[in-house]
């Protein structure tokens, strides 16, 4: 079953919760609504013919010009050796999406990473804290409008280039 057939199946099952199938040469994907993603993934995992039992990757990208953040899910089926990409677009100012933690336990850390670096809020997550950056860090570094602070705890974050330092 190819991605297009899976899209048809999902559209029948979930109606408005599933958006378009985007035929892109390097990354064909299915658009899913933010509120439906957990149900869609649970269906893809449990359905006997699909067996997407592995959440291989979860990440988010900030599209500043569109004023949107896209959360990208890569599902994989070991049984059928098949990939599926889902994308959820959310508002940049107030990005909220349902957590997948209860469907795929691995989502716990992947979602924490997306929250930490891109600032996506995963509703229902049991432990949504920063994971890579320090707790007291301000902002989300992979947002396109992130301004790097000049100092962190009194330590300068910039250093003069080693090539231009005066060697007198």
């Amino acid at each position: 079953m190819d991605a297009r057939a899976i899209h048809k199946l999902l559209a029948n099952e979930f109606g408005d919760g599933v958006g378009n199938f985007v035929e892109q040469p390097t990354e064909p994907h299915i658009e899913v609504d933010a509120t439906a993603i957990a149900k869609v993934c649970s269906y893809l995992k449990e359905n006997g013919d699909l067996n997407f039992e592995h959440l291989s990757n979860l990440t988010a990208t900030d599209y500043l010009e569109e004023n949107r953040i896209r959360i990208i899910y890569h599902l994989h089926s070991y049984k059928h050796a098949r990939w599926l990409t889902l994308k959820v677009a959310v508002d940049r100012e107030n990005p909220h999406v349902a957590t997948l933690e209860n469907v795929y336990p691995v989502a716990n850390w992947l979602e924490r990473e997306a929250y930490d670096l891109v600032g996506v809020n995963f509703d229902g997550h049991s432990d949504l804290r920063r994971i890579l950056m320090p707790d007291d860090w301000v902002g989300h570094p992979l947002r396109k409008d992130f301004q790097e602070p000049s100092h962190y705890h009194g330590i300068s974050t910039v250093r003069e280039s080693m090539l231009t330092i005066n060697r007198n």
Binding site: T26, S56, H74, W83
Partner: peptide, 19 residues
């Protein structure tokens, strides 16, 4: 556009997503 590349590293499946 974007792409998703998967390969087998010594520590297992390594997923690269690039836009």
């Amino acid at each position: 556009g974007d792409c998703h590349v998967v390969l087998e590293s010594a520590r297992g499946e390594m997923d690269w997503y690039c836009a």
